[in-house]
Simulated assay, not measured.
Amino acid sequence: MRVDFYQLGGAQPDSVIAAIAGRLLGEEQRLLVVASDEALLARLDRLLWDQGATSFLPHGLAGGADDTAQPILLSTGADAPNLARNILIADGEWRDSALAYERAFYLFDEETLEGARLSWKLLAGREGVERNYWAQEDGKWVKKA
C-alpha cells in the first residue's frame, strides 16, 4: 500500500484534487475523496462539474442512488461503495481506514502539518506501507522523501 503525502503550501487543494482525480480517471481507476467538512465536499462537487466540456470529471456526492457507478465519489466516510482502490484525504485528517486501499493521497497544509508529521512517523513502522512526501517547487511537485 502506498501513501503519498502532499504538502499544499501555496497550492489550492481544489486544483490538486482535480489533477489527481483526472490522472486516475485517465488510468481507468476509481477514487474516493474524503473530508469531514461537507462545505469542502460541496465546493469540490462544483469544481469537478465546472471543469468545462473537455475536462469534465464524472463524480457524485455520497448518499445518492448511483454511488456504486461513480468513478469519483465525494464522501465524509471512508467506505467506498464505488469500489475505489484509491482514497484521497482532502481535509488533512489522517484516517487509518485509508490503509485498506491500494493507494492513499494525503493532502495537508500548515494547519494540519503536525498531524501529518505524526502520521508520517506512525506509518514508518507499518509493514507493507510505502510512504512518499511531495512538495511544490516552482509550480511543480517534487518528491522530497
Rank of each mutant, 00 (worst) to 15 (best):
A21R: 02
A116I: 07
D79I: 05
E93S: 09
A65N: 12
W141S: 03
K140E: 15
N86E: 10
R95P: 06
T68S: 15
A19W: 09
Q29L: 11
L40K: 12
D79L: 02
L48G: 04
S97N: 09
P13L: 07
I89F: 04
D79P: 00
D66A: 12
V33K: 01
G77Y: 10
I72V: 13
A100P: 08
D96H: 12
E111R: 14
Q7M: 07
D14H: 10
L47E: 12
A42R: 15
L25T: 03
D37H: 08
G77N: 12
A19Y: 02
E114D: 15
Q136N: 04
Q70L: 09
Q70V: 03
Q29Y: 07
V142R: 14
F56M: 11
T68P: 11
S55P: 03
V3P: 05
S36A: 15
Y133F: 15
R43E: 14
D66S: 13
G128K: 10
L107R: 04
L83G: 09
W120D: 00
L32W: 07
G60I: 02
R23Q: 15
W134G: 02
A145Q: 13
G64N: 09
F108E: 02
Y133R: 07
Y101N: 00
S119I: 03
G26A: 06
Y133D: 02
A42V: 09
A124V: 03
T112D: 03
W134A: 05
D45S: 13
D50P: 01
L8K: 10
E130D: 15
D45T: 02
N132Q: 14
Q70T: 00
D14N: 06
K140I: 12
I89K: 01
A11Q: 13
G63E: 09
W134V: 11
R126V: 14
L8C: 03
D37A: 10
G63A: 04
W134C: 06
D138M: 01
E130F: 07
T112R: 12
V142Y: 09
W120N: 02
